[in-house]
Design a protein around this nucleic acid. Sequence first.
DNA 1: TAGATTGTTAATCGATTAACAATC
DNA 2: TAGATTGTTAATCGATTAACAATC
Lengths: 211, 211
Amino acid sequence: MARSDIPDIVIGRLPIYLRALTRLQQEGHEITSSQELGKRLGISSAQIRKDLSHFGEFGKQGTGYNISTLSNELRRILHVDREWRVAVIGIGDLGHALAHYAGFAHRGFRITHLFDNDPAKIGQRVNELEILPYDRMVEIIRQEGLKIAMITTPADAAQEVADLLVEAGIRAILSYAPIVLNVPENVRIQYIDPVIHLQHMTYYLSNSRNR
Amino acid sequence: MARSDIPDIVIGRLPIYLRALTRLQQEGHEITSSQELGKRLGISSAQIRKDLSHFGEFGKQGTGYNISTLSNELRRILHVDREWRVAVIGIGDLGHALAHYAGFAHRGFRITHLFDNDPAKIGQRVNELEILPYDRMVEIIRQEGLKIAMITTPADAAQEVADLLVEAGIRAILSYAPIVLNVPENVRIQYIDPVIHLQHMTYYLSNSRNR
DNA sequence: TAGATTGTTAATCGATTAACAATC
DNA sequence: TAGATTGTTAATCGATTAACAATC
């Protein structure tokens, strides 16, 4: 089956599977089954088997999956069997937090470039990385061949920054700005906005007084 | 139609609609249509109308929707026509960033309590809020009647913290720890893990060298 | 009025699940 | 071998979309 035929919703679950496998491995497991994995994730075992079947046969009847082997397959499929360098644009509190975050290591990503437009911040160092100015951003990103960036600017600056990133050849953007950004079709974009998640949950909270 | 019959995937889109409406209002619009909204969000106009129809009739044929009216309806439906107080557990870089984040205001949430277990941090103030110790957490959250918490601890501490939050009466958790947490059925939980989003996107990035 | 857009129905599309032969 | 679990098929389930009468 051609790659492009695989539903995006399936792709979206693969990182979840990979994360769970890594966790199982840390706990000392060597093999697992679709049932065990499904129970942990709140997903049916049939769905896990079906999802994986889009990419090949990774299990053994009667036994299950070798965690190490399946992890490696998923890393290969997701293209995180390497280390992608990532730029962060907008070095406020959140940019700082991401620059310090240890959770990228061993999962395919490393933050290597920081950009801001505040003269007071430019030249400062965060975690050994120098904060670089916007007016060198396109040049540097293009020259270094960076393909991934995270936007942590205020909402009002985000579209302008996104335009520059696209111009610089960035192919995937993770935006923390709470607005929908316009980018060309060949650029992937995803969003993180904690308020969206909180509002999703408050729907289900009864009207009991928020004392 | 009973509330419980409304698909969760519909509920998940309502905050997106609300955010877009707020944006339109900031730009000076007073009315909009399902078509305009859909174009902005990359969603079909039919889906927007269908989603809203689960809750009532908010539009006017030939005209569209009054933005202010529809926003208020969505706030009411999502229970963010009030201000929920939120606790943050784990005051590292990310906890700091959330405590400073201005994006909660006017969207239904205010961070009012910070907790950590590091003696060096306890008693310090972040944004006027004192960092409180874990051993008073259950007592304080229960007494104050807090219903929502965000977990920003390392992964290894997250389950333990979640257990305490449940014990304290928390009903909705937004976790930034990259693991699946076990909570009772009556407690809502959602996750934010930037690596999941990045890995979802790298699938689509061609194998061109990550120079 | 004429034009535009809603709310809703029915059809289509796609995703999930149940079940089981194959087989380790 | 007997027991367990995969990969896959077909059925079921649910979500999205097209189309249009109603109506502002």
